[in-house]
Simulated scan of single mutants.
Amino acid sequence: MSLFIYACSSNNSEKKADRTYAEESAPAASDPNAYDPHRGEGKFDKVDLGDKLDVAMAEAGKTIVDLKCASCHKMTDEKLVGPGWKGVSERRKPEWIMNFITNPDAMLDKDPELQAQLELCLVRMPNQNLSDDDARKILEYMRQNDGVK
């Protein structure tokens, strides 16, 4: 699964110790068709991560990643077919990650940063038809990869 075209060449190194994310202005709430760059396009509006890493969930996420994602993504910042995943859980909100995992087509069609990354990576992420539960496990594995304990 080619998960994060966004990270393909991004060198954004914002620290997320306080779990805040990129300061972008969200679209006006009165425009239901506006794309929200903080949460992406999909059903996830709020993802509760908890204070600590769920190790069992991260291990299950690794199993899914090894099966569906590792052929295109490395857990480092190195590009393979798609971008490396290092730091992605620090650069993006969990809602955005979950929405991209479960709804990549709409995200690629609407997110200007993803469209720019697509020009660099040259391969559109396929929809792997992952469940919400699988997406959450992958997110937890990404968090583990980024040093969350």
Rank of each mutant, 00 (worst) to 15 (best):
D31F: 06
Q115Y: 02
D36P: 06
P126G: 04
I97L: 15
L122A: 14
S13C: 10
A26R: 15
Y21L: 09
Y21P: 09
A34C: 06
F44K: 00
D111E: 04
A22D: 13
R136A: 14
D66R: 01
E113M: 06
P37H: 04
K93Y: 15
G82Y: 04
D51C: 00
M75E: 10
A116R: 06
W96P: 06
P104Y: 02
F4D: 05
E119L: 10
A60I: 00
P104A: 09
L49Q: 10
T20R: 10
E41P: 02
G84C: 03
G84K: 04
E119I: 08
L108Q: 09
K149C: 01
K15R: 15
N145H: 05
R19M: 13
R136L: 15
A17K: 14
Y141T: 02
M1K: 07
G42E: 12
F4N: 06
H73F: 07
E95P: 07
D132V: 00
Q144A: 12
D66N: 11
D105F: 04
G42I: 07
Y6C: 13
L120T: 12
A70C: 02
T76F: 05
A7N: 15
M75L: 11
I97E: 14
P126Q: 04
E41S: 13
D51F: 01
R39P: 13
D48G: 05
L80E: 13
A70S: 14
D48A: 12
S71I: 06
S9D: 13
R143H: 03
K149T: 04
A29K: 09
S25R: 13
T63S: 09
N99D: 15
K149G: 02
E119N: 11
L108N: 12
Q115E: 05
K68E: 14
N127H: 01
L130R: 00
K137H: 04
G82W: 06
S71A: 13
D133G: 01
S71W: 11
S71T: 08
F44H: 04
K74W: 08
A22P: 05
R136S: 12
T102Y: 07
G147D: 11
G40C: 08
G87S: 05
G82M: 06
S2E: 14
D132A: 07
S71Q: 10
S71V: 07
N145I: 09
S30D: 14
Q115K: 11
K149Q: 09
V148L: 14
E23R: 07
Y141A: 09
A106E: 15
D51L: 07
Y21C: 04
L80C: 07
I5D: 08
Q117A: 15
G61V: 00
E90M: 10
A60P: 00
Q115T: 03
S9T: 14
T76H: 03
D133R: 06
D45K: 08
S89T: 12
D48E: 15
P94H: 09
D18T: 06
S10K: 00
E95V: 04
M57L: 09
E140I: 02
F4P: 02
D105H: 08
P32E: 12
R143T: 03
E24F: 07
L49H: 02
K86S: 12
D105L: 12
E14R: 07
K74Y: 11
D134F: 00
D51P: 01
A17D: 15
E90S: 09
L49T: 12
M125F: 10
Q115A: 03
R39D: 15
G42H: 07
